[in-house]
């Protein structure tokens, strides 16, 4: 007697989010990045569509990074001291298809750049590099509320993904993203209910659920990775079963978490492995964008994604 396979059929799909707009669409990007669109659990190709591979975004800052590991800094060399050279190195040398720029320089403790300076930086960056952008605030709510609207406007029509909206500070960002044609990153503290609630609040303001990317907040390998892993699995199961408010792609900030750990500081190899395995494990729970730091870890994970998607 033949073995009857147990096949799961899901009634719903994860929404597709596009980052970047080409000339035809009113932007100036050379390529676009598509994420989401799944009708199956991660890597189970036999049960549905997984039309878009997980994408890696290189994390860069608008200022030379302050507390990055020596190993990370030397991996980029002198370029890291000039944000534009850093961005160009990612694109030209490491073949980045997507950049995630953190506007750290606007933070009151990191230079306190004015909103106008920040906007000018983004305009110049968009001129110099042609890959799509993810733009993240400095994490200081008050300052971000001043900076991010002008940054968003400076990138109008470029269809960036902008973050992070949080439960008690989302309105300003949603209004800007809505006006300037971007998508939003909605951050929740490893909590599926808050993720859902925040998505509802955002969509109530008129930004459709198809323009939200969930940042579930992750822990690195050995530092609570499993919490995010399971939250993402639960959210993905709910979304595929029909919960539209959770049917958004995930973005995971892997680099910043992995390189904070004690283990990543033990040796170059261990640091790279720590970042790579944090990333690949999250791919299995549904990550769509991995924001990463070390070029070699990025290259390893990128090859692994190719292997996985060859079927």
């Amino acid at each position: 007697m033949g073995t009857q396979l147990v096949l799961e059929k899901w009634p719903a799909a994860i929404s597709t989010v596009i980052i970047g707009a080409t000339k035809d669409e009113g932007g100036s990007r050379s390529n676009i990045v598509k994420i989401g669109g799944q009708t199956s659990l991660p890597l189970l190709f036999k049960e549905g569509d997984l039309p878009n591979k997980p994408k890696i975004a290189f994390e860069i800052w608008d200022i030379p990074p302050q507390d990055w590991q020596e190993e990370l800094i030397s991996a980029y060399g002198k370029a890291i001291n000039d944000p534009f050279a850093w961005a160009e190195k990612c694109v030209n040398e490491f073949k980045a298809q997507l950049l995630c720029v953190k506007m750290q320089g606007a933070h009151p403790d990191s230079g306190n750049k004015t909103p106008q300076e920040a906007a000018k930086f983004i305009s110049a960056l968009l001129n110099k590099i042609k890959v799509p952008l993810i733009i993240i605030g400095s994490g200081d709510d008050t300052k971000d509320n001043l900076v991010m609207p002008v940054v968003s406007e400076a990138a109008k029509k470029e269809r960036c993904s902008i973050g992070c909206a949080v439960q008690d500070n989302y309105k300003t960002l949603v209004a800007s993203v809505l006006a300037d044609g971007h998508s939003i990153i909605a951050e929740s503290p490893i909590d599926i209910n808050i993720a859902k609630q925040l998505n509802i609040l955002i969509s109530d303001m008129g930004l459709s659920l198809e323009r939200i990317v969930i940042n579930p907040t992750i822990g690195a390998l050995g530092y609570g990775l499993e919490y995010a892993y399971s939250i993402m699995e639960r959210a993905r199961l709910a979304a595929l079963s029909g919960d539209k408010t959770l049917a958004c792609p995930f973005i995971c900030f892997v680099g910043q978490e992995a390189w904070k750990t004690k283990e990543a500081k033990v040796s170059v190899e261990q640091g790279i492995a720590w970042e790579a395995i944090t990333a690949t494990s999250l791919i299995q729970s549904g990550a769509d964008i991995l924001v990463m730091r070390h070029p070699k870890a990025i290259q390893k994970v990128s090859n692994f994604i190719e292997t996985l998607y060859q079927g």
Partner: peptide, 20 residues
């Protein structure tokens, strides 16, 4: 058998097998 490789693998196993 490099220790950096093995500790990475065993830590992931520890995470996945932690009782939620």
């Amino acid at each position: 058998t490099a220790s950096w490789e093995i500790i990475s693998i065993l830590t992931l196993r520890q995470n996945i097998y932690t009782d939620p």
